[in-house]
Each structure stands twice: as structure tokens, then as C-alpha cells.
């Protein structure tokens, strides 16, 4: 008895579903037909008015959204710029030929660099470079020596050794391409990468 009622119930539900679905299908087709009529029958001015209102509303919303996004972008970019400008103020230091000692002019630069490094939670890579003269293999060691001496000097200025790494590029990454003392003097350097990506 109970089972019979249950089966009838399921059947009823199925029928209702069918009706509902076909109803939907009908509605859809009605809307479609209506839309078709709108396009062909209704007056063009009426259509223009509604379209105009919609467009204005959309444009307004879009402008507001874009303004909000722009403000957010600008805020983030100015923060980035501030960080970058601090990093931009970090300057290279230069060395004499075949030497790795920190020159007097480099000491002032390192003091200013140290202040920037200490101004935040920064990680620093110190790159040691050489000019093109001399032996590539020896220059690998000389570049490392320059980076190490620089690191030592910065440590004495209070920059934590744990935040600094050294790498030598030897004579492989010249910044000036000439083959004279002016170019060589620029290439014998230690440069700094603040908060490297990797």
C-alpha cells in the first residue's frame, strides 16, 4: 500500500517536472519571438532612448570602477617607486687595477648605501666586477675578493652579514664597452642588487 503511494508520488513529481520544463521552453520561445517583434515592430526612437539610458548608466559605472582601480594602482606604484628610488640611490663603488681594497671615495658611497640597506628588511647581493684586462680566471677570483671586501666594510657599518651575498662576474659583465682607461675604471666595480627576485 505504502509502496503504491510512493510510486504514484514519484510519477507525480516527474509529471510536474515535465510541465515545468516544457513551460520554460515555451517561455523562452515567447521571449525570443517578442525580441524579434521589438526589433521589427517597435518604434526606433523608443529603442534609442532605452539604449541611451543603458549606455549612460554603464559608462557611469565603468568610470567609477576605473577610478577606484586607478587610485589603487597609483597607490601601489608610488609605494614601489619609493622603494625603487631608495634602491636607485644605491651607488656602485670603484676599484684600482688589480686591487680589492676599498678606496676613500668608495667609503662615503658605502656609508650612504648602508643607510638605505638598513632602512628596511632588505636582502642584498654584492656583485664584484673587473675590467677586461688580465686573466679571466684570475679575474673571477679578483671580482669575488672585491665583493667580499665590500661585504666586510658594510658589515662594519652595521649591515647584517646574513642579509648579504656575494657573487663575482669576473670580467664578463662590463658596464662600459670601451677599451680605454675611462671604460676600465667604470668596469672595476662592486654593484648592488637590493631584494633580488630570485
Amino acid at each position: 500500500m505504502k509502496r503504491k503511494i510512493f510510486i504514484v508520488g514519484i510519477f507525480a513529481v516527474l509529471v510536474m517536472c515535465l510541465v515545468f520544463l516544457s513551460g520554460c521552453a515555451e517561455k523562452k520561445s515567447v521571449v525570443k519571438e517578442g525580441a524579434a517583434e521589438d526589433q521589427t515592430v517597435s518604434s526606433q526612437t523608443a529603442a534609442k532612448d532605452t539604449a541611451k539610458e543603458d549606455a549612460e548608466r554603464l559608462a557611469r559605472e565603468k568610470a567609477e570602477r576605473e577610478a577606484r582601480e586607478r587610485a589603487e594602482r597609483e597607490r601601489m606604484e608610488s609605494e614601489k617607486r619609493a622603494a625603487a628610488s631608495r634602491a636607485d640611490n644605491v651607488k656602485d663603488i670603484y676599484f684600482d687595477f688589480d686591487k680589492s681594497n676599498i678606496r676613500p671615495d668608495a667609503r662615503e658611497v658605502l656609508k650612504a648605501n648602508a643607510e638605505i640597506f638598513l632602512s628596511g628588511n632588505n636582502k642584498i647581493v654584492i656583485e664584484g666586477h673587473c675590467d677586461e684586462r688580465g686573466t679571466a680566471e684570475y679575474n673571477m677570483a679578483l671580482g669575488e675578493r672585491r665583493a667580499q671586501e665590500t661585504k666586510k666594510y658594510l658589515t662594519n657599518l652595521g649591515v647584517s652579514a646574513a642579509t648579504m651575498k656575494t657573487i663575482s662576474y669576473g670580467e664578463e659583465h662590463p658596464i662600459a664597452s670601451g677599451h680605454d682607461e675611462a671604460a676600465w675604471a667604470k668596469n672595476r666595480r662592486a654593484s648592488f642588487v637590493v631584494n633580488p627576485q630570485k
Binding site: E137, M140, A141, E144, K165, T166, I167, S168
Partner: peptide
């Protein structure tokens, strides 16, 4: 294979 990868220079 990589046989020396200490910090700093490995020549």
C-alpha cells in the same frame, strides 16, 4: 653533475 656549489666562488 654539480660537484661544488658552496657559497661564493666555485672555480
Amino acid at each position: 653533475k654539480k660537484i661544488a656549489s658552496f657559497s661564493g666562488l666555485n672555480l
